[in-house]
C-alpha cells in the first residue's frame, strides 16, 4: 500500500545551520505516528517542512504519492494537510467563533461547514460556551482545544500536531490525548504527532520515530519502543 506521507532523505537548514540531516519516515493512512525527541531535536522543523512553512534543502516529501516539498503552506491546506502549531497558535484577538471559522477559510460548502462546526463544538463543548469570547481569554487547555478544533474545520486527511501537551496539567493532557485518539478512530484521520512527552505519545500512537539532533535514531511499533531500555532511560524516566 502506498504511504499517505513518505518523507525521504530530508535535509533542512536555517541559513547554514543544519537542523535536519537526512531523515526519512513514513505515515500510513489511518495511523497515529509519533515523532519524539528532546528540545531542539528538529521535530518542529520537520512538521514545518511538511506543512510548507519551510523549504527543504534536499529530499522529498511525498503526500498521497505526489512530491509536495516546496509548495507554499496556504496551498497545502487545500490538499487537506492541517497543522496545529507548537504553542497552539490561536489568534488571541479573534473570538473563538472567528478562530473556528478561519479553520474553514478555504471551504465553500456552507452546509458542510455548519455540520462540522456542530461536530467540533460537540467534541469540545467548552468552546461552544465561550464562542463569543476572544481566544486570548481562554485557559491554556481551552486554547489547545481551540487549536485542534480549528484544524479539524479544514477536514484534514493528514493532521500534524506539534506538542499538544505543552504546558498543560496532566489531567488536561489526558483529555486532549483521548480526543486525539477518538478523532483518529472515528474519522480515520491520519495523525502525525510531535511530542516531548514520550509517555503520552507512545501510548496514543501506533508507531513512533525517535529524533535526536536532526537524525532519526530509533523507530518501531510504539508498544515495543516503550519497552526499549534506552528509551525507558532517556524518555520515560524509568
Amino acid at each position: 500500500m502506498e504511504h499517505i506521507l513518505n518523507v525521504k532523505n530530508l535535509h533542512v537548514s536555517y541559513g547554514v545551520v543544519p537542523a535536519l540531516r537526512n531523515i526519512s519516515f513514513h505515515v500510513d493512512e489511518g495511523e497515529i505516528v509519533a515523532l519524539i525527541g528532546p528540545n531542539g531535536a528538529g521535530k518542529t522543523t520537520a512538521l514545518h517542512t511538511i506543512s510548507g512553512l519551510l523549504k527543504p534543502k534536499e529530499g522529498f516529501i511525498l503526500y498521497e504519492g505526489r512530491d509536495i516539498s516546496g509548495i507554499e503552506a496556504h496551498k497545502l491546506v487545500k490538499e487537506s494537510i492541517s497543522q496545529v502549531p507548537e504553542g497552539r497558535g490561536i489568534f488571541p484577538i479573534l473570538t473563538v467563533a472567528e478562530n473556528i471559522n478561519l479553520g474553514a477559510y478555504l471551504r465553500k460548502d456552507k452546509d458542510g461547514i455548519r455540520r462540522d462546526k456542530e461536530w467540533v463544538y460537540n467534541i469540545f463543548p467548552r468552546l461552544k460556551e465561550r464562542m463569543n469570547q476572544v481566544g486570548g481569554t481562554l485557559s491554556g487547555g481551552e486554547q489547545q482545544m481551540l487549536a485542534i478544533a480549528r484544524a479539524l474545520m479544514a477536514r484534514p486527511r493528514l493532521l500534524l500536531l506539534d506538542e499538544p501537551s505543552m504546558g498543560l496539567a496532566p489531567v488536561i493532557v489526558e483529555d486532549i490525548f483521548k480526543i486525539i485518539k477518538k478523532i483518529n478512530k472515528e474519522n480515520g484521520t491520519t495523525i502525525l504527532l510531535v511530542e516531548q512527552n514520550a509517555q503520552m505519545a507512545l501510548t496514543a500512537s501506533h508507531r513512533a520515530y525517535v529524533i535526536e539532533v536532526g537524525e532519526i535514531v530509533n523507530e518501531g511499533c510504539s508498544k515495543e519502543l516503550k519497552k526499549d531500555d534506552r528509551i525507558q532511560k532517556a524518555y520515560l524516566g524509568i
Binding site: 512553512l53 479553520g103 477559510y105
Partner: peptide, 11 residues
C-alpha cells in the same frame, strides 16, 4: 497576529 499561523489556515 502571526503570518505563519495565518498561512496554516490557508490564507
Amino acid at each position: 497576529v502571526s503570518i505563519p499561523n495565518a498561512k496554516l489556515m490557508g490564507i
